[in-house]
Design a protein around this nucleic acid. Sequence first.
DNA 1: ACAGTATTTATCCAACGGGTTAATTTCTCC
DNA 2: GGAGAAATTAACCCGTTGGATAAATACTGT
Lengths: 255, 255
Amino acid sequence: MSARMIKPIQTVTQRAPGLAKAKAKRTLKWQRDPEGMRLRILEAAKQEFSTHGLAGARVDRIAAKAGANKRMLYYHVGNKDELYLAVLEGAYDKIRSEERGLDLEHLDPPEAIRRLIEFTWSYFLRNPEFLSLLQTENLARAKHLKKSTKVKSMHSPFVEMIRTVVRRGVESGDFQVAVDPVQLYISIAALSFFYLSNSATLSVIFGRDLLAKDAKDERLAHMAGLVLAALTGRSAALFEIAKAPKSRTVVAQTV
Amino acid sequence: MSARMIKPIQTVTQRAPGLAKAKAKRTLKWQRDPEGMRLRILEAAKQEFSTHGLAGARVDRIAAKAGANKRMLYYHVGNKDELYLAVLEGAYDKIRSEERGLDLEHLDPPEAIRRLIEFTWSYFLRNPEFLSLLQTENLARAKHLKKSTKVKSMHSPFVEMIRTVVRRGVESGDFQVAVDPVQLYISIAALSFFYLSNSATLSVIFGRDLLAKDAKDERLAHMAGLVLAALTGRSAALFEIAKAPKSRTVVAQTV
DNA sequence: ACAGTATTTATCCAACGGGTTAATTTCTCC
DNA sequence: GGAGAAATTAACCCGTTGGATAAATACTGT
């Protein structure tokens, strides 16, 4: 998808009808494209791993989906586990990089938190494979992630970002408590993550489609209300907004 | 474990040394025990599925762990998927049954909510396989659960229980908002579930052991503070309680 | 234009894994 | 005490699967 499909020179069989096998010689059977190949493999692997889990993923299927020969996976990335780790690292890289662009520093603390919640929610919605990959990795007790050197480093800046927001909120009087940024982030992620990653079973259990448009809007409002109410101490006002039926537009409103 | 191990009459080879194969005839090779067998199979399957996921689980391993012949799984329960569903149903049955004993009706609304939070947290801590099973089922988009007739029914009473608590809380003035019970329950479950089910990756990422005793205490305090603060609107006071843990750096601090 | 290397394809295979078939053993009831 | 049913064991089947080996083809620099 991202990598332009160079290889498929399906024209191999496209031997002009009539001339038996004369000198149609200069029809390439395939083209080289290492980078593109690698990207296609990783993309295919991401899909496969996220839809089937680690053990359920099939190497052959990944190859097929990538339009590659199975051997290519081992040539360009490594065996199944290494492939999985590569995919996982890519996934973390992507979300953290987007988060970096949030620019929470320049926002009013409550607005910053709200923005973080909305971003997290929408990111998870837009990238369901990310959720699956994490679930799978946790099922494996993070055995792959532990081997990764890259991933460990890229999180402290993010935590500091949140810590600053909380500190500012407390100083300005917007927030009533100096909550631990890690706890706060985990909670924010949890509210979205669990709802989405477990939507299948929850929908069955509670007998309502949690992924319906209205349900999703409702959920976002609920989460924002919950967290902001806790931080600011103004439950009523904040939850009120959640109740607003259609006018989804109103996101925040100072009392 | 639960089923008394009847079968292992390993004495089969215990033929008294000396008498070739005379009439040591009356040494049983095995004993019948259908119910026990079934229980052992389900218990073994629960462990296997929760530690390896659906695709990663090995039927032979389950049989071995249950001290049974592989054939027994098919005889007493069914194929791999049916086995998985049986395990899942048992898991749901167990937690909902414990929840029924919570007796939230007779508690002060805030206390009831706190109790629900504490129960959920401790149940997840005590039954980590439950988390894995749910994760696995969600990875499979609840395809097994959808076939289950039993499970669907046993959840409405629980929702009603929460609904009542919320209503009482609003009427008494303890709670400032009449939050949707399903949303509330999902949030409460989410805060514990995500933290625990993703503790492996989160621990790596944030560089702290989230399962250490102190970390767990801190988490429980944080969750209770968050939810109750949001409902009652008294952030400061509630988060205060979180401060209790002696050593740990001050988690919450009134301004 | 060609030699050397990088990239890709074509096959193969041994172990595995879910499920089955058929024989054995235990138990129950008459 | 034995016949028929229930429970259990033993052995096998066969498609799948991760990975490997070897040959072919495309490029690159000289």
